[in-house]
């Protein structure tokens, strides 16, 4: 498993066998409170970095998720349809949101590593 990278907007991405796994950081889920619904993207959607790709809803707020990298959505986490609480309980594990095949891996270089992100959010 590769290193996890973070965007300033609190998305994370980590590479698993050349595919990027994207979700929101543990810190972000804490800020949002109880997640009640995740509007997932369509598989096959082509994204540019920064595109709005999903919506994460708590009871009183809806937050847009922006794609941290460019590429094509290859899989979405269907488990969230029945159990959106996974984003709270396991944001960076079972609470992943979508997988993306990256069109430009160099975009990862602009993102924060764990230590930088931790200091960014503290």
């Amino acid at each position: 498993m590769s290193e996890t990278k973070y965007s300033t907007d609190h998305e994370y991405i980590r590479l698993e066998a050349e595919v990027g796994v994207v979700g929101i950081s543990t810190y972000a889920q804490e800020q949002l409170g109880d997640i009640v619904y995740v509007e997932l993207p369509n598989v096959g959607a082509k994204l540019s970095k920064g595109d709005e790709v999903a919506v994460i809803e708590s009871v009183k707020a809806a937050s847009e998720l922006y794609s941290p990298v460019s590429g094509e959505v290859v899989e979405v986490n269907e488990a969230l349809n029945d159990e959106p609480a996974l984003v709270n309980s396991d944001a960076q594990g079972g609470g992943w949101i979508f997988k993306i095949s990256l069109s430009d891996k160099s975009e990862l270089d602009e993102m924060m590593d764990e230590a930088t992100y931790t200091s960014h959010t503290s």
Binding site: Q31, L32, K60, S63, E64, L65
Partner: peptide
């Protein structure tokens, strides 16, 4: 993501 949170608890 957009951190659109009004930050009030919604659980009992």
């Amino acid at each position: 993501m957009s951190m659109n949170s009004t930050g009030r608890p919604t659980r009992a």
